[in-house]
Structures are given as structure tokens and as C-alpha cells.
Design a binder for these strands. Structure first.
Length: 235
DNA sequence: TCATTAACTGTCG
DNA sequence: CGACAGTTAATGA
């Protein structure tokens, strides 16, 4: 089993990495677990009690809730250096969220009690976590606004911009392979609608597609499509 | 290769 | 705009 090493890790916005010296000095680094997930592996089950917090060492994950008719609402995509499970931390009750790897992923994990101890003894870490929560709340608020007010076309464009921010583009295509359904579940619509918007955008030469790969050749032009909403700035 | 899953299209409420 | 049914294309066991 691979043990992800914090000292050689390049995820500089990871909270653990940021405070690795203090954490290591107090001996908490030895209590870290490493978990490897194959693509499509469901490592967080809806309703199950959460075992601490997860930090992505490498890979990519989608976090979602499932509705009554089986429809998924993807809350966020997380990749290198991101935190998973923060909403359920400290709540005591079970956490209604699922997480599955969308690429092969290595996760770092601290149990609840180690984490509690760490946060009480390292104020800098606690403060970092607090600012992270504030940012998350802000994102959550604008996401709510988007789902309620944007048209399907705008939601899809906004989602593609999110993927671009999160994963960037390689050789003209977004550096993540996602199904149309996953785009739909994140945008808050259906896969058919996404397909229609995508083919319309392709006709307008605003995007290029090749199978599952999607590319945005002119980012400025693309952003202008939803500029009037001023929603593209965050989340 | 065959069987399953995903992409896409048309239509209806 | 979303839901359903149906066809075609891609994937993978």
C-alpha cells in the first residue's frame, strides 16, 4: 500500500501541506491513513457515518446526493489538495453524501479523534479550516442562485467554465473525462438537455468535442456567453 | 465477439 | 424544459 508522503507532496493549497511542519512536529503525520481508489469506486456512502476528513493526494472525485427518483445532484468535483467530508465533520450524526472517484485517486485520511486533537492544538490549522468553510459557504450560495435562475444553456456553459477552472485544458480539451450525465447532474438538468446544448455550442464553434472530450478554443468568447449574469466570477 | 452502457434524436405534455 | 422511447455508437468483458 502506498503511503502518501506530505513532505514531497506538491498540493500546496492542501490544509495539511500548509501546516505540515506543525502537524509533523506534534506527531500527527504518523496517524494519517492512505486510501487508494480505482475509478468509479464509491468510497463514501450516503448515510454512513463519516470516518474523519479526506484530503485528495492525487486524482479526482465527485461528491453528490441522491434524490428519491434516483437522480443525482453533484455538489462538487474535487481534485488534488481538496477536502472531502468537511460538511459532516463534527456533526455527530450520519452524513447524507456520497463520493465516487472519477479517476484513479489516492486519499489521505485522518480519523475524527485525531483531527479533533489536531484542531485543538494547532490554531493555525483551525483558522485555515475556518476560512475554507467560509469560502465553501459562499460557493454554495452562488450555486443555489445558479440552479434557480440560469437557463439550461447558461448552466451548461457555467459548468464547462467550472471544469476549465478546476482541471484546465490539455491539447485543446478539458483535462477530465466526464459523461454528459455527470455534467447534467452537476448543472442541475438532464443529460438530454446537456447533449442538445453541447451540439448547439459546437455548431456555433464555441466548443469542440471529440467523444467525451470537450474543448473551449476561445475562453474569452465563451465567458461572454454568460457575462451578463456575472455568475462566472466565482465557484 | 457479444452484451452492456452512453450518446444522441424525436416527440409529447 | 423535462420525461420517455427509440436508434446508433462506443466500450469492455
Amino acid at each position: 500500500m502506498i503511503k502518501a508522503d506530505c513532505h514531497s507532496c506538491n498540493n500546496n493549497h492542501c490544509l495539511i501541506k500548509k501546516h505540515v511542519h506543525e502537524i509533523d512536529k506534534k506527531g500527527y503525520l504518523d496517524q494519517k491513513n492512505t486510501l487508494t481508489c480505482k475509478k468509479t469506486q464509491n468510497f463514501l456512502l450516503e448515510g454512513a457515518p463519516l470516518q474523519g476528513l479526506f484530503f485528495i493526494y492525487s486524482g479526482s472525485v465527485k461528491v453528490f446526493k441522491t434524490g428519491i427518483n434516483g437522480k443525482e445532484q453533484i455538489i462538487r468535483f474535487s481534485n488534488d489538495g481538496d477536502i472531502i467530508g468537511h460538511r459532516g465533520f463534527g456533526a455527530g450524526q450520519s452524513y447524507q453524501i456520497s463520493a465516487v472517484a472519477v479517476a484513479d485517486t489516492v486519499l489521505c485520511n485522518f480519523s475524527n479523534h485525531v483531527l479533533e486533537d489536531m484542531l485543538k492544538k494547532i490554531p493555525n490549522l483551525t483558522y485555515s479550516l475556518m476560512t475554507f468553510y467560509a469560502e465553501e459557504l459562499s460557493r454554495s450560495e452562488s450555486k443555489m442562485k445558479k440552479i434557480a435562475q440560469m437557463s439550461v444553456r447558461e448552466k451548461v456553459i457555467d459548468t464547462l467554465l467550472y471544469f476549465n477552472r478546476k482541471y484546465g485544458q490539455k491539447e485543446g480539451f478539458l483535462d477530465i473525462k466526464l459523461s454528459r450525465k455527470e455534467i447534467a447532474d452537476f448543472a442541475g438538468t438532464t443529460d438530454e438537455q446537456v447533449i442538445r446544448v453541447l451540439s448547439a455550442l459546437k455548431k456555433e464553434s464555441l466548443i469542440q468535442t471529440e467523444g467525451k472530450k470537450i474543448g473551449i478554443p476561445n475562453l474569452q468568447l465563451f465567458k461572454q456567453q454568460i457575462a451578463e449574469h456575472n455568475f462566472f466570477l466565482d465557484s
